[in-house]
Nucleic acid binder design. Structure first.
Lengths: 205, 205
DNA sequence: AAAATCAGCGTACACTTGTAAGCTTAAATA
DNA sequence: TATTTAAGCTTACAAGTGTACGCTGATTTT
């Protein structure tokens, strides 16, 4: 059921979005979420500092909202990748390419996840952790079904794969296109390493 | 040649140390380097805020010094691990155990590296990157010698191994002892996955 | 039509921050 | 011994921060 919003609620939603967008747009290589101030964000969103509180009790609350949105964006991306794979692409090639595209097009979104994963707020850290687990769970399912691995082993493999890809993404942020291409090649080799190792160990047991 | 320091230079060195120690001791799960202020650090070190400038031109300069020290600590740790391995320990078991001990005993030092790796200062990021490359280079050498792998393949393998261990360390920070033990087991399995995969792929070529 | 709600505003306050300027005083140098 | 050097201090200031308080005016509810 989608409730039709009144004029007032619509406007409120709009400002809320403006705040979120303002915060995202202020993120950069040189500016992390924790270095944003309530006043800066409000200014960028075009409202008075004190009006901020009509939408979020805290910068923290805004931040958590942003992490959720970032996770959502990332999962949507995964779905796209799976579609491409289903229609005949190589798993590793497609996954890495998709991820790298994501980082190129949404670097600030990725930076948020990357930084808050080891940030100073436990709530943030566990929010990012949850998103990561989502990611791993979906990949585990896939591996289970595709390779007939036990779920436990698939979890371990998936975790390693995601770790490597995520890390490569982090590294890519500071590289130019040429170096990124090299990184992508190396990353694919590493993923194959893990996949081969998993195959081998699964046959044994 | 070790120059004997005059009384004055000795005192200066002492305060410099006090500043570095103060900064390290203020780091915690809830407080990152970038959230430290020059005044806080100076206060903790027992000097006036303006005296800070007699030692560092900047909080940035202090931070880079800290990253270097952290990297040094980590490399010392690696040497210990190699000694233990040389005297008959399992490579993977020993490495993971040593690393986990490091994180337990020096969590704030590790946190510094972890956070600044994706922080807002390019100088910091590349400093941490350098330390990481050191780490990987030493491991590559080891793998080369131990397994007769080509240096290129060893680099790729070492990179994957370090990524996985480093990531596990990051995860360990938020876990209790029980969960940490589980994590250690999982991490070892993942390292074996990579090692097996590398063996397999090296035989082929 | 009257009353209640509430998003957004302006003002205000108490803090913290980085850092400039100039002084003191003990150590180093000549 | 006389002079220079420099680590550390005090004072001072401008800039930025989070947020409390109370008002306004349009929308919503009664």
């Amino acid at each position: 059921m989608t409730t039709t919003l009144g004029v007032r609620a619509q406007q409120k939603e709009k400002t809320r979005r403006a705040l979120i967008d303002a915060a995202f747009s202020q993120l950069s290589a040189d500016k992390s979420f924790s270095s944003l101030s309530l006043r800066e964000v409000s200014r960028e969103a075009g409202i008075a500092p004190t009006s901020f509180y009509r939408h979020f009790s805290d910068m923290n609350e805004l931040g958590l909202t942003m992490v959720d949105e970032a996770g959502l964006t990332l999962r949507q991306l995964m779905r796209q990748a799976r579609e491409r794979i289903a229609s005949g692409g190589s798993v590793i090639q497609t996954s890495v390419a998709t991820f790298m595209e994501f980082i190129e097009n949404n670097s600030n979104v990725f930076r948020l996840l990357l930084r808050e994963r080891s940030g100073t707020s436990a709530a943030f850290r566990s929010a990012v952790y949850r998103e990561n687990q989502h990611f791993i769970a979906e990949l585990s399912d896939y591996l289970c079904r595709a390779n007939g691995t036990s779920l436990e082993n698939a979890r371990i493999e998936a975790d390693a794969l995601v770790t490597i890809v995520f890390n490569a993404g982090a590294e890519a942020l500071d590289l130019d296109n040429e170096k990124r291409a090299e990184l992508a090649i190396r990353t694919k080799k590493q993923l194959r390493l893990v996949a081969k190792g998993a195959m081998l160990l699964n046959r044994k047991s």
